[in-house]
Simulated scan of single mutants.
Amino acid sequence: MESAQGFARTVMVTGGAGFIGSNFIRLVLAERPDARVVNVDALTYAGCADNLADVRSDARYAFVHADVRDAAAMAQAFERFAPDAVVHFAAESHVDRSIADPSLFQSVNVGGTAALLEAARAAWACRDGFRAGCRFLHVSTDEVYGDLPLDPCCSDGSDAFREDAPLRPRSPYAASKAAAEMFVGAYGATYGLPIVTVRCSNNYGPRQHAEKLIPKTIERACAGLPVPLYGSGSNVRDWLYVQDCCRGVLAALEKGRAGQVYNLGGGCALPNVRLVEAVRDALHDAGAARAAAFSVEHVADRPGHDRRYAMNCEKAAAELGWRPTTPFEEGMRATVAWYLERAGVV
């Protein structure tokens, strides 16, 4: 993929009505004036058309209401819009839901990815391989690596997962994302499809669905309800502000080497109990009065709950020129402000 000056003319974004996808679309339309964006989304419970209400009138934006598992619909979308690139966000992403219904995650995350890959392969094929400039970017997760001990074995962080670490997923969600990655890699190796994969750490920011930890904490605190926290709350996650993630995805799309994987982490590792305390502090600073009664309710731990995630992101820095730039406190303030404004709390 060429640099920003030669950015793909038309980008198909799957799952673009979701949390990260909608932020990514907004970024592309704002910073790549020559780009067109086609948003393909099934509008399941986690997708919200209003996430992109402010860009609906943009002539460079189009919406296709379709499920990535629908091979005919994907082929039709490729034929109609002739995208130069695909950025594949569409997925079932909530671990708890994957434990309750693993077959859905297999169907959407694996089957949907396979259907989309086949549609791209058919649409971009030409006599000499594939159309010049095409690119399939797959968005994955740090959870495919499995977990690490709570206590780092090395103080310098050298136990963090690099891109060549073996994949050892431990939840149905993580397994489905790892399997999807295998399909993406296989299409690159077998057919020569130009593919790139990014593995992202936990995102946070505006427009995230209320089932996720940070918006759930905000909403329950503002309602005067206790915040449920699995086990002791000692499980560690690395938090990445969504705008930084989207810039990393865009950098991988434009600069990433075909066939490569890039880790995108926030460099902000926090135990979950400290994370909800940070949300509490941001709510207090924002003047959310009802959050003054903030409390945590420890509940039975989730089965197979991963202890700690950590990724080494030196490759993305060296090859993509990407590093997260939003300090956690700044990102948390912006996140809390967005939810409070939406709820009319302040």
Rank of each mutant, 00 (worst) to 15 (best):
A4T: 10
F7T: 00
A8Q: 14
M12F: 01
G15W: 01
G15L: 02
G16P: 07
S22K: 08
I25C: 00
L27I: 08
V28W: 08
E31I: 00
P33H: 00
V38I: 15
L43T: 02
A46T: 14
C48P: 02
L52C: 03
V55S: 01
A62F: 05
R69N: 04
Q76L: 05
Q76W: 12
A77E: 08
F81N: 04
F81R: 03
F81Y: 15
P83R: 11
V87I: 15
D96R: 13
D101L: 07
S103C: 07
F105V: 01
S107D: 15
V108P: 09
G111S: 10
G111Y: 08
T113D: 06
T113R: 05
R121F: 07
A123K: 12
A123D: 08
A125K: 15
A125W: 05
C126V: 13
C126F: 07
G129E: 10
G129L: 12
G129W: 13
F130E: 04
F130C: 04
R131D: 03
H138A: 12
H138N: 15
D142M: 12
V144S: 00
Y145W: 05
G146F: 05
L148H: 00
L150I: 09
C153S: 14
D156I: 06
L167S: 14
R168P: 04
R170T: 15
S171N: 12
P172F: 06
Y173Q: 05
S176L: 03
A178D: 05
A179G: 01
E181Y: 01
Y187H: 14
L193A: 00
V196D: 03
N202H: 11
N202E: 10
Q208Y: 12
H209W: 14
H209N: 14
A210W: 10
I214P: 05
I218N: 00
E219P: 04
E219G: 07
R220H: 09
R220F: 10
A221H: 11
L225H: 06
G233P: 06
S234C: 09
D238M: 10
W239G: 04
D244W: 08
D244Y: 09
C245S: 04
R247C: 13
A251C: 06
L253D: 08
V261W: 11
V261D: 06
Y262V: 06
G267R: 02
A269V: 00
P271T: 11
R274M: 05
R274E: 15
E277K: 13
E277Q: 14
D281E: 13
L283K: 04
A291K: 07
A293R: 12
S295A: 14
V299S: 04
A300D: 11
R302W: 05
P303Q: 10
D306L: 03
R307E: 13
R307W: 12
A310V: 03
C313N: 14
K315G: 04
K315D: 03
K315I: 07
A316T: 03
E319T: 02
L320S: 08
T325H: 03
E329V: 13
E329L: 07
E330Y: 00
G331P: 11
M332H: 00
R333A: 09
A334C: 02
A337L: 09
L340H: 00
G344N: 09
